[in-house]
């Protein structure tokens, strides 16, 4: 991966698609008749997503990944912080009808569960015609057929009249991808696009995503808890833990020289598909469970599980440190001072 060195220069020249600063989302929950608490789903994160990049956000269940997607898509309002899309404030974009339409055209999504992200009472044809209807464009059967072929559902004619329950999981996810591509968006946000699929299908869908990206110069934001999958596709990776980003950097750095103990633990716990490897005999494990989002641990949120913690960790929140160009880590171990 020699491209990386020039890559970072190149990357800086690329247009910024999303610039996210200090983003927070708290959900209020009633804990009693008069008492309430806040679930800190996302607690101050920054992302810088550039054109043509595959930006991946990983983290365990409940770490706030989906909440981030929802805010990027304007489906939830941030409690605090700012999202800029192509230099403009997202809240402003969405408050105006015509700019909102433009945003919708440019930013599309694929959701985690292909079973519930397609309306069970619609045929594949209805579903794929919807984007054009919404944006008042002409619908030709040709276009819809092309879309289906694009995502590998051939012969397309056979799929057009089918209902969702007549498709397999992998086929459903292909329909979702086709729908997201219909309006020729710049950005596709994918929340766990392969989580519900079998291994062989996962590989196929990943392959499809890689092809489409190359063909249309798409920008992907991929959310996932399946770290190994991202290895094949990621340019940038952000690791979230309990509502915060603990490490962020070029994919190659994250996978080959991870610096944060949590990232390390995540990578270690991937079981290798090879009984001969030493790792498959020992299976290194990160002990403990992710913390409660209502009362996250003081100091470094990872400290109850961290094998490297020391006296500072439960008192002081670690600052973000750039350990390499574009590679930032929040851990006291790396704070030289």
């Amino acid at each position: 991966m020699q491209w990386l060195k020039e890559g970072s220069v190149l990357a800086n020249m690329r247009q910024t698609i999303f610039l996210i600063t200090g983003l927070k989302k708290y959900y209020m929950v009633k804990t009693g008749l008069f008492s309430k608490a806040y679930i800190k789903a996302v607690d101050g994160v920054n992302f810088h997503i550039r054109e043509g990049e595959t930006y991946c956000i990983v983290g365990e269940s409940g770490s706030g990944k989906t909440t981030v997607t929802k805010m990027l898509l304007g489906l939830e309002q941030p409690t605090e912080g700012k999202i800029e899309f192509l230099g403009k404030d997202l809240a402003k974009i969405l408050s105006n009808n015509s700019s909102a339409k433009e945003f919708r055209k440019n930013v599309q999504a694929v959701f985690q569960d292909p079973y519930s992200s397609l309306n069970p009472r619609k045929t594949v044809k209805d579903i794929l015609e919807k984007p054009f209807k919404v944006h008042n464009s002409v619908i030709e059967e040709k276009t819809v057929v092309r879309l289906l072929e694009e995502v590998g559902l051939t012969p397309a004619k056979e799929f057009l009249p089918r209902y969702v329950h007549q498709l397999s999981g992998g086929q459903r996810q292909r329909v979702c991808i086709a729908r997201a591509l219909a309006l020729k968006p710049k950005v596709v946000i994918l929340d766990e696009p392969t989580a519900a699929l079998d291994v062989t299908i996962k590989a196929q869908i990943l392959n499809l995503l890689i092809d489409l990206k190359e063909k249309y110069n798409l920008t992907y934001v991929i959310i996932s808890h399946e770290l190994p999958l991202l290895k094949s596709i990621a340019d940038k990776v952000s690791v979230m833990y309990a509502g915060k980003v603990v490490e962020e950097g070029p994919a190659e750095r994250i996978f080959n020289s991870p610096k944060h103990p949590y990232t390390l633990g995540l990578l270690e716990s991937i079981p290798p598909p090879d009984p001969k490897s030493a790792k498959s005999k020992t299976l290194p494990t990160l002990e403990g469970e992710p913390p409660s989002p209502v009362n996250p641990p003081k100091g470094c949120r990872f400290h109850p599980r961290c094998p490297y913690r020391f006296n500072l960790c439960d008192k002081l929140e670690p600052k973000e440190i750039e350990v390499f160009p574009e590679h930032r880590v929040s851990c006291h171990l790396l704070d030289k001072k």
């Binding site: 339409k101 999504a109 984007p131």
Partner: peptide
Amino acid sequence: EREYVQAAKVLGAGNFDIMFNE
């Protein structure tokens, strides 16, 4: 709350469209 309703919103569908068609 189903994802297909979210998907329609993401496509830019209006409230009436979503209520009556989805």
